[in-house]
């Protein structure tokens, strides 16, 4: 071995030691594995990591490993989950409303019906905003503009067929317009749509409350309505419903188990997640991240999941994103 290859190995080893010193000891044997079917950084990943933190902090699991399987709104992740984790009661997967839409739009052969529903954990209300300079002041005026000419009202939001798109289509429908004519401009995640709204390039923008919060408080954007049933705590933005637009939708996130587990294993997992979701560690994390607690477990959640699948399918069909 030449001097220099030795040097390179020495550097590698030195880095190992240095990093090991900083990062602490390696992971111990695992009890539970949670799949986040999206890239690190997104909402599902954060939910999975928060679950990991709460489960370990409360001593509900000896150790929890989170892994990411990215691709197509969770279509790749769920396909892997139902095949490789089948019958394994130590596996969980985070999912949400976005996955319902993505599976339909991608004509995925795997559906959420093949998983074992455990619980819905959080929900985030959406907000419709216009630039501060816009002449539109409230939801009725926006509805009137939609009714006058649906094409001229341009919407900015996240990916096609996602929760923002669904909300725009539902708004147009409730305002008396044709949802298949909604002029929705999808932007990549991470708030590129925010720049389009701030720059006055579009009529209105839709996103989770958290993503626009700073700009709304700074007076650069005007929030004209939230999509929750009641006003958000500590926030006087009126709901769409109280302004006469009967639209309630939330970007919920939930957790499911693989198919093929026994009813006892399912009951155990539901009990475990319920205990986690009621723990102070979890509630603190929710507060820290600004998420709304929206726990719904077991059979009630399974029924909710079916309802949402039907609703999303109807909306995507009305937009023309899926053919009946």
């Amino acid at each position: 071995m030449s001097t220099w290859s030795k040097a390179v190995i020495a550097i590698l080893l030195a880095a190992t030691v240095a990093v090991a010193g900083c990062a602490g000891e390696a992971l111990a044997q695992n009890d539970l594995k949670i799949m986040a079917p999206a890239a690190p950084g997104g909402g599902w990943n954060q939910t999975a990591r928060a679950m990991q933190q709460a489960l370990v902090a409360e001593g509900l699991a000896k150790s929890v490993q989170v892994y990411n399987v990215t691709g197509a709104g969770g279509s790749v992740g769920i396909a892997q989950f139902v095949t490789t984790s089948k019958g394994d009661p130590h596996q969980l997967m985070v999912n949400g409303l976005v996955m319902v839409g993505a599976l339909l739009a991608n004509r995925s052969p795997v559906t959420l019906d093949q998983t074992t529903p455990i619980a819905r954990l959080t929900a985030e209300a959406l907000v419709i905003v216009v630039p501060a300079s816009s002449s539109i002041k409230n939801a009725q005026e926006l509805a009137a503009a939609v009714k006058a000419d649906v094409a001229k009202v341009t919407w900015a939001g996240g990916s096609a067929g996602g929760v923002d798109h669904i909300t725009a289509a539902l708004f147009v429908e409730k305002a008396g317009g044709d949802p298949s004519k909604v002029n929705y401009i999808p932007f990549s995640g991470g708030g590129e749509s925010l720049a389009a709204v701030l720059g006055g390039k579009v009529t209105a923008g839709i996103s989770g409350w958290g993503e626009y919060e700073g700009q709304i408080k700074a007076g650069k954007l005007r929030a004209i309505g939230v999509t929750s049933a009641q006003r958000l705590p500590g926030n006087d933005t009126p709901t769409l419903r109280e302004q006469g637009v009967d639209l309630v939708i939330a970007n919920w996130r939930s957790v499911v188990a693989p198919p093929g587990i026994t009813p006892e294993q399912r009951a155990d997992l539901i009990a475990l997640i319920e205990r986690m979701a009621k723990s102070s560690a979890w509630l603190d994390l929710l507060k820290q991240k600004g998420w709304e607690d929206d726990l719904l477990a077991g059979d009630a959640f399974a029924a909710f999941l079916r309802e949402e699948q039907t609703r999303v399918k109807a909306v995507l069909t009305s937009i023309g994103l899926i053919k009946p």
Binding site: G190, G191, L194, G214
Partner: peptide
């Protein structure tokens, strides 16, 4: 200033900032 991560590296940095309680945005 906007809380907009415009590259993969920036998205990782955003995750880093949030760990320090920095919430990038106009008020930061």
């Amino acid at each position: 200033t906007l809380g907009l991560p415009t590259s993969a590296t920036a998205a990782m940095m955003l995750a880093g900032f949030q760990q320090y309680g920095l919430n990038p945005g106009p008020l930061l």
